[in-house]
């Protein structure tokens, strides 16, 4: 009999259910909350998750032909993320664990992104560039944990581009639309380029870009500049981390990994340092349930579990606090 883990993801806009068994993903069902206008409202997203949860779990079980009774453990991402959203996933997971008498496995959302990336790309010991709406970090495994070799000092790259898109009147998701406008840009507008050692800062770039917009700069040129400046900052920091850690594999993970321009840039960075380059496949790039199930499976097999009474959500749970026994 193989070990089966059901994972629940609900850190932000996605309510996801994944089912993993030994070496494969049996189901990956994701319900994504898209606001009608403006940004994500945590309370609204949480309500969306509550409404969609039952159907998502049922779909996952049907697709994988697994009954809840057959599941060995319930995994849940307890953070980092938005409180109201996290609470929905945690509540459902606790209920399932208690009602069906299954062990509950806590999973760190960021670690899960990295683990599914390793599984999907077949890499061994890569350097990760993890860019999404909620995170921008460069991480690699070293001595029992995923260590951070560079990160944003304020806004995540995805959040920065989404906010910029919203301010210039583009609907969400903003990144592909900003990139599309950027492809028609001709002239680079001068903006602040903020790299501090291995870290980046995007908030000043946003302020400056919006100021240029008010001055009447051509929108396409502004999009081009915003894309080129922010990606160049990320590329530079990645290059430093690659030179510093001397890893031979580079993996681009997280929601913004879908960007073709960013993929091209990172491929060039990898080539310059003799590293092989991988992109996480689309289905595992954004937040998803499968990554929680998969990481939960690895953790469960190494004896990680938590009592439902102690399974508090952790909105600011850093990935470098998490011990990774399955890589030791």
């Amino acid at each position: 009999m193989s070990t089966i883990v059901l994972g629940i993801e609900s850190t932000a806009h996605t309510f996801g259910v994944g089912i993993a068994a030994d070496d494969k993903i049996l189901a990956n069902v994701n319900e994504i909350y898209i606001p009608r206008y403006g940004g994500l409202l945590p309370r609204e997203a949480a309500r969306h998750h509550l409404v969609k949860a039952t159907r998502a779990i049922k779909n996952g079980l049907v697709r994988s032909n697994v009954r809840l009774e057959d599941v060995d453990a319930i995994a849940v991402s307890l953070g980092p993320g938005l409180g109201p959203c996290l609470r929905v996933g945690a509540m459902i997971a606790r209920f399932l664990a208690v009602y069906f008498d299954k062990p509950l496995v806590p999973v760190n959302h960021a670690v899960a992104h990295v683990e599914i990336a390793i599984m999907a790309t077949g890499t061994k010991d890569p350097l990760f560039v993890y860019v999404s709406g909620g995170n921008t970090m460069i991480v690699a495994y070293s001595k029992g944990r995923y260590r951070v070799f560079g990160e944003t000092l304020d806004m995540p790259l995805g959040n920065f581009l989404d906010s910029f898109a919203r301010e210039i009147g583009l609907p969400q998701p903003g990144v592909p639309r900003v990139e599309e406008l950027a492809s028609k840009g001709e002239r680079l507008v001068e903006l602040p380029y903020v790299v501090k050692g291995q870290d980046m800062s995007f908030s000043g770039l946003l302020t400056a870009a919006l100021r240029e917009l008010k001055k009447g700069v051509r929108l396409e040129d502004l999009c081009l500049s915003v894309i080129e400046y922010s990606y160049a900052m990320l590329a530079e920091v990645t290059e430093r981390a690659l030179a510093h850690t001397r890893k031979k594999e580079l993996v681009l993970a997280g929601g913004v990994a879908r960007s073709r321009r960013l993929q091209d840039i990172m491929r060039m960075v990898a080539e310059e340092h003799g590293a092989a380059f991988y992109v996480v496949p689309d289905e595992y790039a954004g937040d998803n349930g499968a990554m929680i199930a998969w990481t939960g499976l690895l953790a469960y097999k190494h004896g990680v579990s938590i009592s439902p009474k102690e399974s508090f959500i952790r909105q600011r749970w850093r990935m470098d606090e998490v011990e990774i026994p399955w890589r030791a």
């Binding site: 980092p80 990160e151 000092l153 600011r316 850093r318």
Partner: peptide, 14 residues
Amino acid sequence: EIRSRGRYVAVEVR
């Protein structure tokens, strides 16, 4: 302060 500004730094003192 800089460290606590990092998006996901735990509130507890590390």
